[in-house]
Design a protein around this nucleic acid. Structure first.
Lengths: 124, 124
DNA sequence: CTGTATCCATTGGGATACTG
DNA sequence: CAGTATCCCAATGGATACAG
């Protein structure tokens, strides 16, 4: 028997079938900002503006959408501090924290193999 | 000093800045099929049709584009076997193999936390 | 079998301005 | 400060048919 998926009742070898949870996760992170946001929240809660500044290039609209998506998936929490100038903090939920490690693995890979995936041809 | 990026000369804390290699990798896998293709090739070379069947739902056009993108990034190799009915095999390059582990980490996370990210509200 | 060519719908995402 | 509202473009990706 091979790796199984959601139903756990297939003939196997459908690890990448329509029902595999991988699909869900991929749908979640398969966009330009989600993983970056999680990374930005990795060490401490951040305010909207802080995240925006950290993720150079993200516009408020897009950041807002990303934040909501992650919140809906329960990966991050949104905390409002009643104050005159609005103050909101985003933080990883315990669930979100568990995603940090796998994502860090990806980041490490990225840093280690940056040169290899560039389109610079190797000395051949 | 914190984690650094491409240039390695920033003031730090720009791990998610415009120049971070994470961006490149994310651009590469931030789509519906790339990681699935890599996973499908994980154990053995596969033919176009085989990959297509395995990744339920992918259309030839999209699969072709994905394959080319990955090939251009040197994560997979494309081998043509001269034969009457065309025969082409796709396989992971050594570089591609190194991505398997981090990706598997993500897959494991997906399988372990499937229930948590669904939008089913918890018993609150 | 292995793709490519079209056509088309959706949407992610960028820019900017504006409001509570 | 924290977002929302528009406008708009480009790209992803789905369906289908067709070609080497």
């Amino acid at each position: 028997m091979t790796v199984m998926c959601r139903t756990g009742e297939h003939d196997a070898h459908d690890v990448y079938g329509r029902l595999c949870p991988c699909r869900d996760v991929l749908d979640l992170i398969a966009n330009k900002w989600s993983t970056l946001v999680i990374g930005a929240l990795e060490n401490e809660p951040q305010r909207f503006g802080a995240v925006q500044r950290r993720l150079e290039g993200v516009t408020p609209k897009v950041l807002s959408a990303t934040l909501k998506r992650l919140e809906a998936s329960r990966l991050i929490d949104r905390t409002v501090f009643p104050a005159v100038p609005a103050h909101v903090e985003y933080s990883l939920t315990p669930l979100g924290e568990t995603l940090v490690a796998p994502l860090a693995g990806l980041r490490r890979w990225a840093e280690e193999h940056l040169d290899d995936i560039g389109d610079q041809p190797d000395a051949d």
